[in-house]
Computed example of a mutant assay.
Amino acid sequence: MTSAERYEQELKQSDIDHHTPTAGAMTGHIIANLLIHSLKISQAKLFAQGPAALFLAQTGDKWIEYEQAEFAKLNRLLVNSGESIPTTTDQYKQFTMLEEDGVTKYQQGDDQLFALVKDFDTQTLFITKAIALAQKEKWPELANNLTDLLAWIKGQIALTQRFLGHDLRTGLYTEDDDDDF
Rank of each mutant, 00 (worst) to 15 (best):
M1C: 06
T2G: 12
T2N: 13
E8N: 05
Q9V: 07
Q9F: 06
E10H: 05
K12L: 14
K12T: 09
Q13Y: 03
D17Y: 03
H18C: 05
T20S: 00
M26A: 02
T27G: 00
G28A: 01
G28E: 07
I31A: 04
L35K: 13
Q43P: 04
Q43E: 15
F47G: 08
A48V: 12
A52W: 08
L56W: 09
L56D: 11
G60T: 13
G60V: 12
W63C: 07
Y66E: 14
Y66L: 09
Q68Y: 08
E70T: 08
L74A: 05
R76S: 15
L77C: 05
L77P: 02
N80P: 01
N80K: 13
S81L: 02
G82V: 04
I85F: 02
T87M: 09
T87S: 11
T88I: 01
Y92K: 05
K93I: 10
T96K: 06
G102T: 11
Q108C: 04
F114T: 02
L116K: 11
V117G: 08
T122L: 06
Q123N: 09
T128M: 01
K129S: 02
K129C: 00
L133N: 00
A143H: 07
L149C: 10
I153H: 09
I153E: 06
G155T: 15
L159E: 15
T160W: 05
T160A: 07
L168C: 04
L172H: 09
T174F: 12
D179I: 11
